[in-house]
């Protein structure tokens, strides 16, 4: 999809003020969203999301609370399936395959598309068993020690824990726990890693480590990150999508809408939408 942004002529426009900027050219796309809408119990949480997510890039989803960033992220590996009332409409392609197609098993989807959560959620087991859990349930038991070491090295945690792999993971600090969760995720060798505000419960130093890690990880993985922290999005991501809350005429219902999606540098320095500019410059929050 090649749209020249400068012209500012939206292709689809439900409301004139919600002109949706299209992404710049993406070489290889991992996800393609066409008119995605997520409903909880029949009420929309996000509407009309159309975007393409690049392979081996960091894509950040930013926006105010309640704009549906996390909801959108959870669509991508079918975690929304776990909520009985949730419903996803529209088309979501993963490497060209319909992720919500009739023959797609959500369990297989989650093997390929891993997730790191807002609050570190290590299992109440040893550090080793936490990382080995994924390979074990997938039946990859050969060379488990090497897999665990590789994953812990990949998550920049190996040097800190190599002498206490048998200790309970609950003894680690919050930042270490989160890196353990990242190690756990890359131990199953996914294609994509989704991160739902991975640093919101961490101190600045731990946050810095995880941000460095993300930049390293994008060599191998496609990363989609939801963040409240605009500086974080600016530091780590290649592309940024800005979502905002939209209200209906009576102001009863609210849902998230994609306002702008572009190269991160452009979103933060020269956004094409006034609301993006207000948000990234801190005028509204």
């Amino acid at each position: 999809m090649v749209v020249v942004l400068k012209e500012q002529t939206p292709k689809i426009s439900v409301r004139p003020e919600f002109q949706q900027a299209a992404a710049p050219q993406i070489k290889e796309k991992v996800f393609e969203l066409n008119g995605i809408e997520v409903l909880y119990g029949g009420v929309s949480a996000v509407k009309d999301i159309s975007m393409e997510i690049g392979h081996k890039e960091v894509t950040a989803l930013i926006g105010p609370s309640g704009c549906g960033k996390s909801t959108l992220l959870r669509c991508l590996n079918r975690m929304n399936d776990l909520i009985p009332t949730a419903e996803v409409q529209g088309e979501l392609l993963y490497h060209g395959e319909d992720l919500y197609g009739p023959n797609v098993d959500p369990v297989q989807v989650r093997k390929l598309i891993g997730m790191v959560f807002q609050k570190p959620n290590p299992f109440p087991k040893s550090i080793y068993d936490n990382v080995a859990f994924g390979p074990r349930v997938l039946g990859r038991k050969d060379g488990l020690d090497e897999t665990v070491e590789k994953a812990l090295r990949g998550a920049a945690l190996w040097d800190e824990v190599k002498d206490r792999l048998k200790d309970n993971a609950f003894g680690l600090s919050g930042g270490q726990q989160q890196r353990l969760c990242i190690a756990r995720c890359i131990a199953v060798e996914p294609d994509v890693i989704l991160m739902d505000e991975p640093c919101s419960a961490l101190d600045p130093i731990s946050t810095g480590k995880i941000e460095d890690l993300m930049i390293e990880l994008k060599e191998q993985y496609s990363i989609v990150i939801v963040t409240h922290n605009m500086q974080q999005a600016a530091r780590v991501s290649d592309r940024t999508a800005f979502l905002m809350v939209e209200l209906d005429a009576e102001e009863h219902n609210r849902w998230g809408r994609l306002v702008e999606y572009d190269a991160t540098e452009k979103v933060f320095t020269n956004p094409s939408d006034k609301r993006t500019e207000d948000y990234v410059s801190g005028k509204v929050g």
């Binding site: 891993g114 299992f123 995720c185």
Partner: peptide
């Protein structure tokens, strides 16, 4: 048992 544990496990591709 917190739901975060179940989600963490399911997100790794466990049934």
């Amino acid at each position: 048992v917190p739901d975060s544990i179940r989600q963490g496990s399911l997100a790794l591709g466990a049934t």
